[in-house]
Design a protein around this nucleic acid. Structure first.
Lengths: 229, 229
DNA sequence: TCCGCGCTTATTGTATACAAAATGTATTTT
DNA sequence: AAAATACATTTTGTATACAATAAGCGCGGA
């Protein structure tokens, strides 16, 4: 396996949470697993580090970037602004080729939804938004966008495993929003693209918040409340 | 020289325009110059690439990131938004240690201004704003901020070489704005920090625009106008 | 039993030799 | 003379051996 492929494989595994946040990446192990010598392997880790998938500490090797509560807070503060800015630029700089790519990915996403394949959904959703970033074509915004998307994808991983009909409906809505966004890009309608993006974000955020703070358990008046929150 | 030092040295050379945008970085040459073998040298280049200083093309080596007109356009679109966002977060998350660092840098900046040392001014101004980015502490915003700063510093390089009293006045204003910003951070005043940041940006932008489109040359009615623009 | 110390082992970092790719040049062919 | 091609050279990519650093572990002493 060559460097480029390995980069893709590792990044997808990280996005799919197949490699846990915070877990160490051993050079010798990876080297043996993928049939690459340590030198090019280390380059791949460097690049993964540059893209934000991995954190390297001198003399201590590489570990999958962790997601602590502090960064989560930053995430919710930053995401809507960057997403909106990217959407605007993407609508201004949309090309037929990129829109076609977007439609392909969106089709795959619909199929993953139909097949109830949470991890595929997460990865395809990721690719969808990454492509929008490419379309925006701003070398200054994309690095931030990509970092946001990494954590966004990892967080939403859990939520795509819809357990009730409400959640299934939310996924369907998100899917429709994708289509509407593509339409806005085709029409070169920045304002509309931003509007849809913020709606899309609001939906995603609500689902994440619902997960972080689920419906409170029914209170038991007779129970011991010392440990209640 | 070790990797970390080399990273700093190369990045500063790039910021100071001592290495021209677009120019190739030869591994063997750098390896010989800095007494590092090619393997760790390549890692440094990878990291410079991850930070946006350098662009690596497979089988074609590394080159200093170029600054074409297309990216310049993106720069002017993106910079104020990111700068403002970072300023807000920095004001919210300011720590005494970081503010002290900021004051140190600012003192150095003043000295460079007094000594009319354009390159030192540019680098210290860079460090000043990078420290604000650290203070903001958002792993999502900093990558974009740092990329913006790289190009901002390289562009402003020319302008710090003030040729008339107007430009000298502008530099003095920028210097005072720095002090005012520090004050806003100390007082944890996000709104004020954003306001000052946008003023600071406006000043810098105006100077850049003035350079890009200088005062027109006096027309010579008798001259040959065929080559005039 | 707990802490500190030195040793062993595992893991990362560096140098160098070799392989592959790209580039430049000279020669040949049309 | 221009273009194409084969060869030589330069430059990047990879593997491996060795060095340095950090982590784990047992031992001894308090």
């Amino acid at each position: 396996m060559n460097k480029k492929e390995l980069f893709t494989v590792l990044s997808e595994r990280i996005l799919r949470l197949e490699i846990e946040p915070g877990s160490a990446l051993d050079e010798a192990t990876l080297s043996a697993e993928f049939g690459l010598s340590r030198t090019p392997l280390r380059e791949v880790l460097q690049r993964l580090s540059g893209a934000g998938f991995v954190t390297i500490e001198p003399n201590r090797g590489a570990a999958v970037s962790s997601m602590d509560l502090d960064t989560m807070r930053n995430f919710f503060q930053t995401a809507p602004m960057i997403y909106a800015a990217v959407a605007r630029l993407a609508a201004e700089g949309a090309t037929p080729a990129r829109i076609a790519a977007l439609k392909d990915i969106q089709q795959g996403f619909r199929e993953a939804v139909a097949a109830s394949a949470p991890r595929d959904m997460a990865v395809l959703n990721h690719q969808f938004h990454e492509t929008i970033g490419d379309m925006a074509g701003s070398p200054y915004l994309t690095p931030s966008l990509k970092r946001l998307l990494i954590d966004h994808t990892r967080m939403s991983q859990t939520f795509y495993a819809a357990r009730d009909t409400v959640e299934q409906g939310q996924i369907a809505t998100a899917c429709d929003q994708h289509d509407a966004m593509i339409e806005a890009f085709e029409q070169r309608a920045p304002a509309r693209a931003v509007e849809l993006t913020l709606e899309h974000w609001a939906l995603s955020r609500d689902r994440m918040e619902r997960f972080a703070r689920p419906d409170p358990l029914p209170l038991d008046p007779a129970g011991d409340m010392r440990n209640a929150v």
